[in-house]
């Protein structure tokens, strides 16, 4: 997707993450390749269990016990991180990547005042003294829009509301001036209005500071509203990739279409929502060939026997034997 020729900030190539179950190794996420450029928001969309959070964890080096990247490359600012030593990778990550998760309380230490937590990461890399550290914390809290930040520096996480906690967690993630932010369902636990505020904040950071954001979500309407590009994941594989406008106007993969059709429309509430029959497969027995075929309304015999080809162009593609809107492109 890089038109300028400049190397993308993050490039993931043929990533495979495997997990162990009863002594056997199963690939859970496979053949995941994508790139993010500075100042862009890439959304990784899928339903629970599709492997989107595992992909994020692999990028952050936070895979849970029993899971490992056993294939592929992760290029962060041109460096191949899987070849680096553990320490070097951690250092590179600390400098370049910030992370925000669904539950801000998990990221915050309940027994430390906010300012200390916010600069803890920064101190590691810049070695600030106390006064400079407090100033830096204030700057960060103001950046993420904590009202009256100056008087709240010494507060503890429980003294903040859910939305404010998530802002503080974002401040924490930004403490080292990262160039990439991985946001894994950052607003799922929040109320509608707070969600809108947090996403507007992310959008502002992306625009003003050239932050690249990998936004992991299950909610396509958020993607439509905020992201630049979208990746759709199903059963551990990418099924479609494209610019958000092109994706919304003519999505290629039947799964993407079904997901879009499953969202109630305020402008046309009488429109029946799309039913997707069946359940997503378990990683322990992914179907052969196209993994969506058993649930796909457009599936033909070939879908169950042959790996689907990549269709579309370099900017908007899908893996499908019978893509939906290619003929009309």
């Amino acid at each position: 997707m890089s038109e300028t020729g400049a190397a993308p900030l993050l490039a993931v190539q043929h990533l495979r993450v495997s997990g162990r179950h009863e002594g056997r190794t199963f690939p859970i996420v496979e053949e995941v390749s994508f790139e993010i450029e500075a100042g862009r928001m890439l959304a990784l969309v899928g339903e629970s269990g599709c492997g989107k959070s595992l992909t994020a964890a692999a990028l952050l080096g936070l895979l849970p016990w029993g899971f490992a990247v056993d294939q592929g490359r992760i290029l962060l600012d041109g460096q191949e991180v899987l070849r680096l030593s553990r320490t070097d990778w951690r250092r590179l990550r600390g400098r370049l990547v910030g992370a925000v998760f669904q539950n801000p309380l998990a990221a915050l230490n309940p027994s430390l005042p906010i300012w200390k937590q916010v600069v803890e990461a920064a101190e590691l890399s810049f070695g600030l003294d106390r006064r400079a550290a407090r100033a830096r914390a204030l700057e960060l809290l103001e950046l993420v829009g904590v009202p009256e930040a100056g008087s709240r520096l010494d507060d503890y996480p429980h003294q903040f509301s859910g939305g404010m906690r998530q802002r503080v967690a974002i401040a924490l993630a930004l403490a080292c001036d990262p160039r990439l932010l991985v946001a894994d369902e950052p607003t799922t636990a929040l109320d509608l209005i707070t969600q809108a505020e947090i996403l507007k904040l992310l959008h502002r950071l992306q625009r003003d500071r050239g932050l690249a954001i990998l936004f992991i979500t299950h909610d396509l309407s958020l993607v439509a509203e905020y992201a630049d590009e979208v990746l759709v994941m199903y059963a551990g594989r990418l099924v479609e990739c494209g610019g958000v406008r092109a994706f919304l106007d003519r999505s290629l993969h039947p799964y993407s279409q079904a997901l879009l059709g499953a969202i109630p429309r305020l402008d046309a509430p009488e429109l029946r929502l799309t039913d997707i029959e069946g359940l997503p497969p378990s990683p322990l027995d992914y179907p052969p060939a196209c993994r969506f075929a058993p649930r796909c309304p457009r599936a033909i015999d070939r879908c169950r026997s042959e790996e689907p080809p990549r269709v579309g162009d370099s900017r908007h593609w899908a893996y499908c034997h019978r893509p939906c809107s290619l003929e009309t492109v």
Partner: peptide, 22 residues
């Protein structure tokens, strides 16, 4: 309703400012 993300609203549309809760 302003805070509700929508599929059909263009990304250039202005999302009106929403007062903070709490």
């Amino acid at each position: 309703f302003a805070a509700l993300p929508r599929l059909v609203r263009g990304r250039d549309a202005v999302i009106p400012s929403v007062p903070a809760l709490g």
